[in-house]
Simulated scan of single mutants.
Amino acid sequence: MKISLLLQLSFITMLVVFLIDSPVYGHCLGDQKALLLKLKNGLTFDSSRSTKLVRWSQNTDCCQWPGVSCDQKGHALVLELDSEAIFSGLENPNQSIRSSIPMELSRLTKLMFLDLSNVALKLERGDLQTLVGNLANLRELYLDEVYISLKRIGWCSTLSSSLPQLRVLSMTDCGISSPFDPVLLNLHFLSVIRLDGNNLSSIVPELLANFTKLTNPQSQ
């Protein structure tokens, strides 16, 4: 009887220690919630059409918010704001990423997946660098239909120098008319690239052949 009781107590003790030391999935860190809420408050969006941002609340765990996924420690890893009725940036030509996408986004440095596609945003000179400059862990970037006004090879050099881990790049219908520069070859892990709907003034297929890991090249 005593041995059985000791075994039960030992098991309970081990279980308590395990639960205390184990990471809590989906439990948002305070600083991550604060950054995401500041991001939301800095955006202009139609709440009647929003399905994600409109449901972000101080009273709920940010790892449970639609469009947000976290790692074991509560850092935001995934941010999906595609088709979120965000419209700040295009109505006023003097606005840029600093007013339509607050700096808090660039401070979510653990992000591995970012989707801002199909929202009415405009990235001008320096804005793309502001957006991705601190996101060195990013694996997938979706900016489809985000108007990118960068002269010459600015977009190529910015992405290649800022996102060394990038696997997927999707920038269809972004209004890019600058050259497709070989500097993108520095993205050694790139396996998917989508640039349809842009006017790229270079021979893209020849350059794409140099991406050794490319499995899904799409560009026109």
Rank of each mutant, 00 (worst) to 15 (best):
N59E: 08
L116S: 09
W155G: 02
S88D: 13
E124M: 13
Y142I: 08
V168F: 08
L141E: 10
N198G: 06
K73V: 04
M103Q: 11
R152V: 10
L150S: 09
L185P: 05
T130N: 11
G74M: 05
P102S: 15
Q64P: 00
L187P: 02
L81C: 09
D115A: 09
L166P: 02
Q129Y: 05
I176V: 08
M171D: 09
V183I: 15
N94S: 14
H75Y: 13
V68Q: 03
V168R: 12
E104D: 14
P164S: 03
P179T: 11
L185N: 12
L105H: 06
W155Q: 04
R194P: 00
S88G: 15
L185G: 06
L135W: 03
R152G: 03
N59C: 00
Q72D: 11
V168M: 11
L195V: 04
H188T: 14
F113C: 02
T130M: 12
E145F: 15
K122P: 00
I97K: 06
R139Y: 12
E124T: 15
R139W: 12
N137V: 02
R125F: 01
D196K: 11
G197H: 02
L163M: 07
L123V: 14
S83Y: 13
L128H: 02
D71M: 04
C70R: 01
L163F: 10
D196V: 13
T109C: 09
Q58R: 10
D144R: 15
D71L: 08
E84V: 08
E91C: 09
V183F: 03
V68Y: 02
S69H: 08
S96V: 10
L105Y: 10
D71E: 01
L163E: 03
Q72E: 09
R167A: 02
A76Q: 00
P102W: 06
V183H: 07
L150D: 04
A76K: 02
E84Q: 14
G197Y: 01
S178A: 14
N134D: 14
Y147D: 13
R152M: 05
Y147S: 15
S160E: 13
K151T: 06
S69V: 02
S57P: 00
K122Y: 12
D61L: 02
S149C: 09
E84Y: 08
D181V: 01
T60Y: 06
F113S: 08
T172I: 08
L90H: 13
S57Y: 01
L116I: 13
S160P: 00
L166A: 07
G89Y: 14
S160Y: 03
R167W: 06
S149A: 14
G89V: 12
C174F: 10
L195I: 05
L108F: 05
P164W: 01
L143G: 11
L195N: 05
S170R: 14
W155N: 01
A85R: 10
I153W: 05
N92A: 08
K110F: 10
A76N: 00
R139M: 05
E91Y: 15
I97D: 06
P102Q: 06
G126F: 10
R167I: 04
W65P: 00
A136G: 10
